[in-house]
Structures are given as structure tokens and as C-alpha cells.
Amino acid sequence: MPNSMQTDANSRELIAFRVGRQEFCINVMMVREIRGWTAATALPRAPRYVRGVINLRGAVLPIVDLAVRLGLPATDPTERNVIIVVQIAHQQIGLLVDAVSDILTASDSNIQTSPDVSSDLVKTFVKGLLPVDGRMISLIGLDNVLPASELEAA
């Protein structure tokens, strides 16, 4: 259900998904695949938002609970949850979200900057806000979604 908005040179496709009661979106170019939830193997000494690792066709894929990463209550995953497999630089990671909700086309002019009152966590991830049919969808960047190489407190 592509949402037709104006298309110009800067337009891009975004994939929107729900985490708790909020909606977020990321650039569709980052997404490698979307798959159902499978139980993850917990990693010792991992931050709380790293739920563990799963087997993605032979590769070991870390799963980030996006809710916890964004400071929301932890997801209690069921079979209806989905994992969005994204490519960040040379690594692939899985984002645990509630559901994929939409595919949008938006240009830079549609994206509004987030108000300055937001918390540091929001500032780290939210790159802009996108109003769509009376909903607010936060565009997030994924550069910092995995912990840095040194052990990071959750």
C-alpha cells in the first residue's frame, strides 16, 4: 500500500513499523528481509536491549529489542512479532518490532525536525518526524543501535 506523496529528486522510500504505541520508520534501502520472531540465544554480558542471537541461514544474527533501545518497555515477543533484518555498514542485525505498518515515500521537505525538548535517547536515534494521515512517524537512524565495541552499561 504505497502512500503516494509528491515525488521529487529527494524522495525516498521508508518502511514504517510499530513499537509499542509508537510508529517509527527507516529507509527501505537498509532492509534486507523481514521475518517472524524465533527464540534467540541470550548472550552473556550483553546490554539489555540485545536479546541474543539467532541463526539466519547459517549466519549469527544479533537481535536488538528496539523498544528497550528507544527507552520503551521491553517487548514480550510472540509469534506475531517480526524481525526486520537491516544492513548497517558491514554488519547485519535484526530489529525486534511489533509489526510492519506501512511503506511510505517521503521527500526531505516532508520531514520535520524533532522538537528540541526531546531526551538524549531520542536525539540519538530520531532524525526527524513525519506526519502521515494524522499519525506521527519518527524517522530513526540506526548507526548507534548496536553497542560500541567496549562494554556498554544497559
Binding site: 548472550l43 540485545v50 542471537v53 547459517g58 549466519a59 549469527v60 554488519q91 547485519q92
Partner: peptide, 18 residues
């Protein structure tokens, strides 16, 4: 299987397997 490929080294863990 490497853990570092998509994640990072985990102390106490040498690698993973399926």
C-alpha cells in the same frame, strides 16, 4: 560461526554454532 561478523567479541565466548 563468528559472533564478530554481525556483532562483536563476547567475553567468555569463543564463537557460536548452530
Amino acid at each position: 560461526k563468528s559472533l564478530e561478523a554481525n556483532y562483536r567479541a563476547v567475553p567468555g565466548i569463543a564463537a557460536a554454532t548452530v
